[in-house]
Write a protein that binds this DNA or RNA. Structure first.
Lengths: 243, 243
DNA sequence: CGGGAAATTGATAAGATTCAACTGCAGTGG
DNA sequence: CCACTGCAGTTGAATCTTATCAATTTCCCG
């Protein structure tokens, strides 16, 4: 499952970088492998921080919970991503990390990593890059949420997912969303109905296509068409196309 | 300017923690002090990454720019915050960092910090806590943006600002926003008119008060009133109070 | 198969934006 | 000294996007 295929054009840089990072971690610090089934939590909000969880396979979401019970999908995570980074400062995890498809994570103790980093400084770089990448990604989410209309946010979500798959050497023309419309809507700050309408409009405009017999599998003829769609919606002149 | 006052109740933990961190940095690694005037940039998007900038005084905003020119205020930063953390992974800064009030930053080279951390491991902890805190803060922003109506987001913004000042030992009952309505609106994902209306409603409900002769200075009688207001707006039953 | 969750679609309502007019204040220069 | 200009802010009315409510349809899984 989620095995890295080796296509003709391997988008090598991303795949290689991630594989190298995982090998480095494996060889320099003690890791505890753990299979997480779809729907199970890697950790939960409030639980004392101690480990990072590096994703070896599968798809995960991180969820924040406000004091009053508002729930928010904060991020989506793939092979090579580190989970639990927000736990360092507070001493406990800031939300739940949940598998949205069965996968495997490697638990790495923070103190063990710092120890190991004395012998293998590259470990530190790997940690810092993981944290920095999450910052960049969060900032991107903020930007999309604040500046794009609903339809474009859905398009951006699909493009993000496709990009993530491509960087990991997986096929990107046909993708399976491991999330319900409600989850996607929560992640994008809109209702499930709006997600459904946006997907319908994207399909009507032939930017995406639904694979027969299932609305979770989506065919993306050209990823750049998504980008054009987003730019089109973002421009001040929002012509009422695709109706 | 922005000197740390020493009130009777010093909210010591925060002040102390930040002061300790700054002293640690000062004593263990080479820093280049730099005064940044209001409106000037600490760094700009695309500029090659090399340094973090630790805020010694002043107020700063970080701004992201999309390919098509959409502009988004991502974060607000105060004494003790680290700027430029998102530059590690990409090798260049992900946005601009701009002073919204004259202040001083300490430039610390990343490589120098890693070197120094061999002798003073606490430096690493400081870096990791700074990054982790920014992650937590970003997640909080996402949560507010996606789950709160406009008025509550403005209230949340004021509470965040007041909390940041309190943690730094500054007076929190009367605060000066160093931002225009347009900047606040951009940060909160709404228009400047909506910010203005929200502030007017908060004032009408006596949750805040405007200091006479200036709409940039705001008096907050009780910070907890802001919290109650937010919770009130967040609850499913949004009684149409404060009209 | 059949029950139930997930998704789609339509009609309506609510919240926020847009457009516009107006106020107050600061800086400039006659 | 005061008119003049421009920017920041406020407020109102019309409009638009998205949420909400409701009715079906689809399909997944036991």
């Amino acid at each position: 499952m989620n095995a890295v295929t080796t296509p003709a054009k391997p988008a090598a840089s991303g795949v290689q970088r991630i594989a190298d990072m995982l090998r480095l971690v494996e060889e320099t610090v003690a890791v505890t492998r753990r299979v997480v089934r779809c729907g199970e939590a890697v950790y939960q909000v409030g639980q004392p921080f101690g480990c990072f969880y590096i994703i070896n396979s599968g798809f995960f979401k991180t969820v924040s919970l406000s004091a009053e019970g508002r729930e928010q999908v904060i991020g989506l995570h793939f092979r090579g991503d580190w989970l639990g980074l927000d736990g360092i400062s507070a001493g406990h995890y800031g939300g739940d990390a949940v598998a949205i498809d069965t996968g495997e994570v490697w638990a790495v103790r923070y103190d063990a990593l710092l120890q190991a980093a004395l012998r293998a400084p590259a470990l530190l770089t790997a940690l810092h890059e993981a944290m920095s990448r999450e910052l960049v990604r969060d900032h991107d989410s903020l930007l999309s949420l604040c500046t794009l209309p609903a339809d474009a946010r859905v398009a951006g979500f699909l493009r993000y997912w496709a990009d993530a798959l491509e960087q990991r050497g997986l096929r990107t023309d046909q993708i399976t969303l491991h999330m319900t419309r409600a989850e996607i809507g929560n992640y994008l700050g809109m209702t499930l109905e709006s997600v459904s309408r946006a997907l319908s409009r994207l399909a009507r405009g032939d930017v995406i296509r639904f694979i027969e017999k299932g609305r979770r599998d989506i065919h993306i003829p050209k990823v750049e068409a998504l980008t054009r769609f987003i730019q089109h919606m973002a421009s001040p002149v929002q012509a009422a196309a695709l109706h």
